[in-house]
Design a protein around this nucleic acid. Structure first.
Lengths: 156, 156
DNA sequence: CAATATATATAAGTATGCTTAACTAATTAG
DNA sequence: CTAATTAGTTAAGCATACTTATATATATTG
């Protein structure tokens, strides 16, 4: 299909632009908060799923359970997550964000604010509405797709 | 303005969804290629600007020139970048991607392929066209805005 | 109940990623 | 031409981020 090709191409171009911007913003943010990019990444994963067992976090980050355990150790030590026993299986520890963890992530998106505001003012109301519709569509569709793990498995 | 608020909200939502996906994909990709997320981030920055002096790379990544020099050392050792003397100022070393560096980054976007294809097939042609228009608009506007460094400076 | 499997944690070891301080080379200013 | 500044590297030191191997607690299975 022709529009699929154009769709992938437009999305790819935007990903390059966005990746470049966000790496720079997240680098500054992480430094300001005494975090590494890896730690910030782990926090995003936990936030998205609500909670994560040690092994499952290791799977999405592609690291061993031992490494995931140590990562959670450091995050817990900084007060960003807590580990609680899973009532269904007492071997399992579920990691979830603390209030501090939540607010830290919320703040991490604010660092993009200047850029996004500049972007907003450079667009007409009509253009903004067009983009809003597009993003709503994308967000909705993405959430209905399978979780990344499945794609990852099918790639290997 | 009302549509600006909705615009920022839609963009924010999409950023959360996309950040979550891309961290997982880039984690897997980095591991497969023996890279860290930090190294991948540095490569993206160099790619975007074409070349980077040691100090300037340090600025966008918010690290000291010494750290940037060491980072480039490791990337050069892996054959992903080369450093060449700036003809205008022989103190300056310009880092740029090698063919291997370029192809590695190109490949890093392919790892999103399964997801993007699934996304594409879940959308009608009409919806795809709407999204294409939106992304073209965004990519174009973003490239005309000032570089991230300026925003960063104004934040501190 | 005993044996096995699973989830996590801990220990030891290595590479990365950062810092500050000291050093070298090139440029700029007086 | 000398002094001061700037760009980059190097060294020492420390925290992070991973690995494998081992240990411990809980679950599952025969």
């Amino acid at each position: 299909m022709d529009s699929s090709q154009a769709f992938l191409s437009a999305l790819h171009k935007w990903m390059k632009v966005y990746t470049h911007r966000s790496i720079s913003y997240f680098s500054v943010f992480a430094k300001e908060h005494g975090l590494s990019l890896s730690q910030l990444g782990a926090l995003f994963q936990i936030q998205h799923k609500g909670c994560f067992s040690v092994s499952n976090l290791g799977e999405v980050l592609d690291i061993t359970p031992a490494a995931a355990s140590q990562m959670l150790d450091r995050l817990a030590h900084q007060g960003l997550i807590v580990r609680s026993e899973d009532p269904h299986d007492r071997r399992v520890k579920q990691a979830s964000l603390t209030a501090l963890g939540e607010s830290t992530l919320a703040e991490s998106f604010l660092i993009h604010k200047n850029w996004l505001n500049a972007l907003a003012t450079s667009l007409s109301s009509e253009e903004q509405l067009q983009i809003i519709t597009a993003f709503d569509l994308l967000s909705e569709k993405t959430e209905h797709l399978a979780d990344p793990q499945h794609d990852v498995e099918s790639l290997s």
